[in-house]
């Protein structure tokens, strides 16, 4: 295994300008037998099946450089998992090209497997009846990790992910948080240069989430591991990723740094004013009143056309003010807006 890792590293160094992961017009169409209602329908389906095509990924082109931490986000059914499965070599694309570290994953599945680690939040890779440490031992044998290196990384993982207490517990008895930590260690034992995380924090409590975020941030920073994260928890993305790829209906509708999507959509700011007395229907020229709740009012204004100092002056001139705060829009709000309204910017600006 260290040999393969070095080989992958060497080939990447040779083509320093070639991105680590490239997809070009990648497509995946699922073909499923259509079901007809009722017993007669089932019979009809059996003898003259009608197939329905469902386009999961509809022409995806992207490039990912070594060491990047990508947030790959989109609503349910947008094609995120299907993309990951094509990148990992699980699924064969219907059309288009895909290359990961110079390898076409579904053609050279086993070579590709040496370069990648995968964590599926909804499905454990660990063996249900075995203690964690036995699963790790088996993985050591599978990847042929030398004993000393295995010891070293395992010790590091035990410490970083605080796994010492449940190392000998059968996986089925672990809590979700413990199991996920085990899954992370299992995916990273062979020190892959690429890590795919598919909804890794789903269903976790805040403590476990934080432990895992800290862990992946560190892996990305210290080992330079390229990480592709799909998640519905945008706090994960905001905290960890520099770049996001937003996918909807199998197409990338935004690809760029988080700051850009915030700038494009986040022109609106909220001015939160707390009055000293109940004030009904307060107004400030240049800002729109969003809500009033007790003594607190929220005004929305456009950062590009209105100056904050003027607004603050106006409000304190007119009313008796106890406190003022300005809120920036959160990524979550922006993404929600895009899911419901569509993306207005230019498509896939690279």
């Amino acid at each position: 295994m260290p040999f393969a890792a070095r080989a992958a590293g060497a080939s990447a160094a040779k083509n320093a300008c070639v991105p680590l992961i490239v997809t070009r017009d990648l497509r995946k169409v699922f073909r499923n037998a259509k079901r007809f209602p009722g017993a007669l329908g089932a019979l009809r389906g059996l003898f003259s099946p009608v197939y329905e095509d469902r386009v999961a990924v509809a022409g995806l082109s992207m490039e990912i450089e070594r060491g990047e931490f990508i947030g790959y986000i989109g609503p349910n059914g947008a094609g995120k998992s299907t993309t990951i499965k094509m990148l990992t070599g699980i699924l064969v694309p219907s059309a288009g090209e895909v290359e990961v570290a110079g390898i076409v994953p579904h053609r050279k599945r086993r070579e590709n497997a040496r370069n990648i680690g995968v964590v599926f939040g909804q499905r454990t890779q660990l063996y249900w009846d075995l203690p964690l440490v036995d699963s790790f031992e088996l993985l050591r044998a599978i990847y042929g990790i030398p004993q000393d290196r295995y010891r070293r990384s395992l010790d590091a993982f035990i410490e970083l992910l605080e796994m010492g207490d449940f190392l000998r517990t059968p996986v089925r008895q672990l809590s979700l948080g413990q199991r996920m930590r085990g899954d992370f260690a299992a995916a990273m034992l062979h020190e892959p240069p690429i890590l795919y995380l598919d909804e890794p924090t789903i269903g976790l409590d805040v403590v476990a989430k934080e432990a895992i975020r800290t862990f992946v941030a560190r892996v990305n920073r210290e080992q330079g591991t390229t990480i592709i994260l799909t998640t519905h928890d945008l706090a994960d993305v905001e905290r960890l990723c520099r770049r996001i790829v937003l996918i909807d209906h199998g197409r990338a509708i935004f690809d760029g740094p988080i700051e850009r999507i915030k700038n494009e959509y986040g022109r609106e700011r909220t001015l939160v004013v707390r009055f000293t007395e109940t004030t009904s229907a307060p107004t400030i020229p240049g800002a729109r009143l969003e809500s009033v709740e007790g003594m607190t009012a929220r005004f929305v204004f456009d950062r590009a056309t209105q100056r904050v100092d003027r607004l603050v002056r106006e409000v304190s001139d007119r009313y008796s003010v106890e406190d003022i705060a300005i809120e920036e829009p959160e990524l979550e709000g922006i993404i929600r807006h895009i899911y419901t309204q569509g993306y207005a910017g230019e498509e896939r600006s690279a």
Partner: peptide, 8 residues
């Protein structure tokens, strides 16, 4: 799925 992502 897991059998596809291991080198055997």
């Amino acid at each position: 799925d897991r059998f596809f992502v291991r080198p055997f």
